[in-house]
Amino acid sequence: MRSLADRATGWLARGVIVFLYVPIVVVVVLSFNDSDVTYKWAGFSTRWYGVLAGDTDLLSSLRVSAEVGVASATLATAGGLLAAMGMARLGRRFRAVFSGGLFLPLVIPEIVLGVALLSVFGTLRADLGLTTLVLGHLVVTLPYAALIVLGAHGALDPALDEAAADLGCNAWQRFRRVTLPLLRQPLVAAWLLCFTISFGNIVMSTFTSGVGTTTLPLRVYSLLKGGLTPEINALGTLLVLFTFLIILGAGLRQMRRVLVGGDGTPG
C-alpha cells in the first residue's frame, strides 16, 4: 500500500508535466482556430497557415532569426571549443582567472549587457544590423557554450592526446581524429542550446537589431499592440514541430547526457 505522500508526489509530478506542456498544446490547438482573435474558438480551419505563407514580414523575421541563430550558435560553439582547448594549456591560476572572466556575463543582467553593447556600437559608429545582432547574441550564448564544452573537454584523459601524437598525429590530426570526435556530442548539445537561446532572445535583440533585421521574437512582440491573430499560433505550431523533429533526430541523447550527467563517452 503506497503512502499518501508517495501518491501526492506522483500526482505533483504529473501536474508539473501538464503545466509544462499546456502552452504547447494550446498553441497547436488554437492554430486551427477559424477566428480573428486567439482567445475565442470559432471552429476548425487551416486558413491561418495560408495567411502565414503569404506574410512576407513575418517570414523575413523568421529568416533573420534563423540566420542569427545559426551564426551565433556556430561562433559560440567554436569559441567555446577554442577556449576549452586553450585553457587546457594554461597554468592553474591563469585558468581560474580566465574561466571567471568567461562566465561573468552569465550573472550580469542581459539588459545591462544590451545597454553596454549599444554604447560600444554607438561609439564605434557601427551600423546596427545582422553583424551587431550576431555579436550581441554571442555575448549571451558564448558563456553557455564554453560551460558545456569546457566540462566535457576537462573530462577527457590527457593521455589520449599524447597517444595520438605517439601514433604519428600532428597537432591538426590529433584535433581532427581524437579531440573533435570525442567532443562531438557536447558540441552538438552546445550548438543546439545556443541556437535556442539566440532564437528566443528579445532583450539583446532589442538593442542590437537594426532596420530590416527585426528578429521573430521582436516582430511577434510588436504584433501584440495590434492584437494577436491565430497566425502566430500557426507559426508556433510549425516551430514546435520543427523542434521535435530535431530532438527526435539527433539531440535527445546528447542533450540528456550533457545536461543530466555523464562524460559523453560510452562505457
Binding site: D157, A159, L160, E162, A163, A164, A165, D166, L167, G168, C169, N170, R177, V178, P181, L182, R184, T265, P266, G267
Partner: peptide, 28 residues
C-alpha cells in the same frame, strides 16, 4: 616532436580511443 619519433608508448591508462572500435584503434 613525439609524432616523428620511431617509437611507441604503452600508456598506464592504456589511452585507447573510446570513439573507435578495437580494429580502428589498432589500425590508427
Amino acid at each position: 616532436p613525439a609524432h616523428k619519433r620511431d617509437l611507441n608508448m604503452l600508456f598506464q591508462s592504456y589511452a585507447l580511443f573510446p570513439h573507435l572500435s578495437v580494429h580502428d584503434n589498432v589500425a590508427f
